[in-house]
Write a protein that binds this DNA or RNA. Structure first.
Length: 194
DNA sequence: TGCAAACCATAAC
DNA sequence: GTTATGGTTTGCA
């Protein structure tokens, strides 16, 4: 049985689907319509599910983390994600995305260089990210530091990045699965937009 | 700047 | 199997 929960915090609605141990999908938005739809769309078609009003402990913890990330806090989350039935390449991309620390961004192209494949394939996977906020797909932008797209709307993507700036001034490299990924200060994006 | 072509894993037929 | 689809990138005028 899949458990679904919603919670409204500061005017924004978070929705999640959980099994006992893992997060199946998470979404957020300003209205029920899109938020709930997103969650439903990512729940396996043949699985029974039920909405719950009172959040379980796991659900509470998840909501707190979501709200922290949304608020630009460096929420160290070790939430268990249900990635098992996702395609291998998708898993790889989501994992690399999760490795981007707060205060930095990278581009679709850089990600492609790191995990293989092409920039557009990366974009496709970001667009379908089942774990909104938890996998920080908002930290992936275009090579010229314009925003690219965002499921939750470009305005939100920009707001998130605005809260995440940490004053870093130069690019650096991190390692994911033994491959190098080039990351750049969030400021580069903010400056470009301004 | 702006446009066209190359790019590449997925999902949908 | 094949085709269509992008949250892209690059090159060239």
């Amino acid at each position: 049985m899949i458990e679904m929960y919603t919670q409204k915090i500061d005017g924004i609605l978070f929705a999640i689907a959980l099994n006992q141990q893992q997060i199946i999908t998470a979404s957020f938005g300003e209205n029920q319509q899109t938020t709930i739809n997103n969650v439903l769309g990512n729940v396996p078609f043949d699985m029974p599910f039920q909405f719950f009003h009172e959040p379980s402990a796991f659900a509470k913890k998840t909501f707190v983390t979501l709200n922290d990330i949304y608020g630009g806090k460096d929420a160290k989350n070790n939430l268990a994600l249900a990635t098992a039935n996702l395609p291998a390449y998708t898993k790889k991309v989501l994992k690399a995305t999760s490795a981007i620390p707060i205060g930095y961004v990278t581009s679709y192209g850089e990600m492609a260089k790191t995990v293989g494949g092409g920039p557009r394939a990366i974009g496709n996977i970001m667009a379908g990210n089942p774990f909104a906020l938890i996998v920080p797909c908002h930290r992936v932008v275009k090579a010229d530091f314009t925003l690219g797209g965002y499921g939750g709307g470009l305005k939100v993507k920009l707001e998130l990045l605005g809260r995440e700036k940490r004053g870093f001034s130069s690019s650096r490299e991190i390692e994911v699965d033994g491959e190098k990924l080039r990351i750049l200060p969030t400021e580069y994006v903010l400056r470009k937009i301004a």
